[in-house]
């Protein structure tokens, strides 16, 4: 089973690597570029953020609504410190320093969120993480001196790599894809390590894990730290993709979008986050073409409802269901 998954994962990765070339073969040049950067690329970037939630939910049983806010902390840190951002808040750092600083800030924020919410479960955890993310959202929206309020910080264009601007569609896509693949591999490795096993033990029965002598609180906080790191990577990429960051990027809408991505993808496996974010991005981009432009949100909502109705464990559950359907009544 595990080998079969590895095979699937490699096939999926190969498909994603080849996707820009395949798109170029079937679409006109500018549309291929659009699909590469603004459908696939955007899906991968938000998939990373959604994966930080899926990681927590799948292996720890924690549904955190703070992940988009944590990603925003990384984005804001980069925007505040990097040279060339408008308006200049602190500036002076190159991307080589600002990006690790951003990811570090997100990791710390993840630890803080984990520590604050360490004694809550289920709906209470959901509420406390939602409250934290709304608190940060309101703070950056009203703080002018550090975050430039409602307008946010613009012109975060990203570093130059290999003589190309970071926002070159192909370069951006492959960097995002590489980051996502590394993070996914890291998550899959981590959950097989002793730390990951304890985490899954906590999900199933925290009391027994504590009785075995493990520090449940510490493991929980560390898991939030890992999720913060993942979200931070996604947040930096999202900020560069959007050429800057504004409070809207971490508001309630964005927070809920990440949850929707995770849920429609399926909370059973981290790869579901990417499937979910791909479906979300495609519908978010094209729903207005398919349906009345004043009411296209209805279509988006209906599609998500159908997915969750048909398969409560999201898109990755559909595969298993199909196998069961086709394979008849094998146990």
């Amino acid at each position: 089973m595990r080998d079969r998954f590895a095979l699937f994962a490699l096939a999926g990765l190969a498909l994603m690597v080849a996707a820009p070339f395949l798109l170029q073969a079937v679409l006109p040049a500018n549309q291929a570029q659009f699909w590469t950067a603004n459908v696939l690329g955007r899906a991968v970037v938000f998939g990373i953020i959604a994966m930080s939630l899926t990681f927590l939910a799948t292996y720890g049983g924690f549904i955190s609504l703070a992940q988009m806010m944590i990603a925003g902390v990384a984005g804001y840190t980069v925007a505040v410190f990097v040279e060339g951002a408008v308006p200049r808040i602190v500036g002076g750092l190159g991307y080589g320093l600002a990006i690790p600083l951003g990811v570090l800030a997100a990791t710390v924020m993840g630890l803080v969120v984990g520590a604050i919410s360490v004694r809550t479960r289920d709906i209470y955890l959901l509420m406390i993480t939602l409250a934290l993310s709304m608190g940060v959202f309101r703070f950056v929206e009203t703080n002018i001196a550090w975050f430039n309020g409602y307008e946010g910080i613009r012109n975060v264009v990203g570093p130059e790599l290999f003589g190309l601007g970071f926002r070159d569609p192909w370069l951006f896509y492959y960097v995002a894809l590489g980051t996502a693949a590394l993070l996914l591999a890291g998550v899959l490795y981590l959950v097989r390590s002793p730390f990951g096993l304890v985490l899954q033990g906590i999900r199933d029965n925290p009391r027994r894990v504590a009785a075995l002598g493990y520090d449940v609180a510490l493991h929980r906080i560390a898991a939030f730290g890992v999720a913060g790191f993942i979200a931070g990577c996604g947040g930096v990429l999202a900020t560069i993709y959007n050429i800057g960051i504004s409070p809207g990027s971490i508001g309630l809408g964005a927070t809920v979008n990440v949850l929707i991505m995770s849920v429609i993808g399926g909370l059973g496996h981290p790869v579901g986050a990417f499937l979910g974010s791909l479906i979300f991005t495609v519908f978010d981009t094209f729903a207005a073409n398919l349906y009345d432009r004043d009411r296209f949100n209805t279509l988006i909502g209906a599609v998500f409802l159908i997915i969750v109705l048909v398969s409560p464990d999201g898109v990755i559950g559909i595969g298993a269901r199909l196998r069961r359907l086709l394979g008849g009544s094998k146990p």
Partner: peptide, 24 residues
Amino acid sequence: IRESSNAQADVALARARKLIEQDN
């Protein structure tokens, strides 16, 4: 070709990219 945003910079940017690159 009409697109809709929600007064957020990110959304407007995504719609503009779609109009320019996809809808040409």
